[in-house]
Amino acid sequence: MTCPEARALLDRLLDGALDPVEERALGDHLAACATCRGRADAEGRLEAAIAGALSEPGPDADAAWERAMARLPAPRRSRAPVVAAAAGLLLAGAAALWLALPRHREVDLAAALLACHGDLLANRVTLTEAPIGEACRSLRSRIEGLPKLPPALPEGFILAGSGVCYRDGTPIGYLAVHRGAAPLSVAVLPPASRAAFPEAWARVESPGGLFHCRASGLSFCAFRADDGLAAALGDVSPADLEALAGAWRR
């Protein structure tokens, strides 16, 4: 490794972001080159000094913190079983079955898709509007090993847009779908997502290959899609999500 090559890696060394091969090669170089070793040390100190300067909260910060904390509304729910929230849901005929579903906290992919859904509702995502065939080609060209999308969604489901989102560095094929007025978020993942979402994979690889749960008052359903995985989430019935899953499972 030359000195310019070593210096190009110094920032990532500071960030602990080198892969093992780079780390070994850079370590060998620094052990032999006092100039680069000095540079690495000095740039580390410079970045720490800049971070230190930026980490000053500023005047009146503590008072602002107390004001912000004081304005938080009272809690509406607890981690204990949600009796009050459940009371409203008991109006529906299928509520008893729905409430028996496990909570999303147990499933990694449900939490990730819930975050995507929050971004969708807050208009924080940029999606491409295209027919499903075109969305399929676009997503598969951007995510290696992504399972195919079905040629069409079931009747009553409309594809609003598609794109790629990232959770923990894992790319997810994302579809925004409408079921009447209800927006749904759909995630499609390649086999390589197994390491990022082990819980969801374990659930869909059990008999039946389809898994339901609740996620912050919404329905969540994960299912196998070819050799990959897909999941849907929204304010609709589990039966609706199962109908959507049917498009992949035909």
Binding site: D15, A17, I50, L54, C165, D168, G169, P171
Partner: peptide, 20 residues
């Protein structure tokens, strides 16, 4: 800022900003 103040790893920053 997310790196220097938040001390987030690259993957966490990418996640936060929906960025590869």
């Amino acid at each position: 800022l997310l790196r220097a103040i938040g001390d987030l790893a690259y993957r966490e920053i990418g996640d936060a900003l929906s960025m590869p």
